[in-house]
């Protein structure tokens, strides 16, 4: 997993809950890196799960909710860092370009990146589906990221998990545009 996920996660934790909570997580998770992460490095995804699990335990917030919040936050970081991927005029076109354009480009930049499959299908002007597929089972993080994207495009959406297979390795998401939050 790319280091940027770790650094951004710890930064979010520090901003929201303070440096003490960061220290507590690092101390109690027995991480291989002892909490030293750099955005350009690559680290074990297990560390991330340990840390998210620990935060949930400490703050008594469910993991999916944490992941969604983190995803939304992480999106704003990504869009600032990689404005080139943000050229699509609207949300659906952007989501549609993830699997076909953004991920292949990311792989050029980071050949060791392990990216989820994210097949998109625009059903009509107001509805599309995204088929999330990854052994990491991080569809909640994906939902957070979509929320972040929707915010960027100033588009209110409702995101639903239509089907969940293999303990979350395969999740069909439906995105509906809505006028209300």
């Amino acid at each position: 997993m790319k280091g940027i996920v770790f650094t951004e996660f710890l930064e979010l934790v520090e901003n929201e809950f303070g440096l003490e909570v960061v220290q507590q997580i690092i101390d109690e998770c027995q991480l291989d890196t002892e909490g030293v992460y750099t955005s350009v490095g690559t680290y074990s995804h297990k560390d991330m799960f340990k840390m998210v699990g620990k935060l949930s335990e400490i703050k008594e917030i469910p993991v999916p909710a944490l992941l969604m919040v983190f995803g939304e936050y992480f999106f704003s970081t990504l869009k600032d860092k990689y404005p080139a991927f943000m050229e699509k005029p609207n949300l659906f076109d952007f989501l549609n370009s993830i699997d076909d354009y953004i991920h292949p480009e990311v792989l050029k930049l980071y050949p060791d990146a392990e990216l989820p499959s994210f097949k998109a299908k625009i059903k009509n002007n107001a509805e599309m589906t995204l088929n999330y597929k990854s052994s990491r089972k991080l569809s909640d993080l994906a939902i957070g990221l979509i929320k972040g994207a929707a915010k960027h495009y100033n588009q209110n959406v409702v995101i639903e998990k239509i089907t969940v297979e293999n303990d979350g390795q395969k999740v069909l998401l439906q995105v509906n545009k809505t006028k209300f939050k």
Binding site: T7, L19, E20, V22, Q23, I26, E34, G35, V36, Y37, T38, S39, V40, G41
Partner: peptide, 16 residues
């Protein structure tokens, strides 16, 4: 705690 965070940052910087 701040010192530890600083040390982590130094390490991370070196790694980076």
């Amino acid at each position: 705690i701040i010192d530890r965070a600083r040390k982590r940052e130094i390490k991370a910087r070196k790694e980076a």
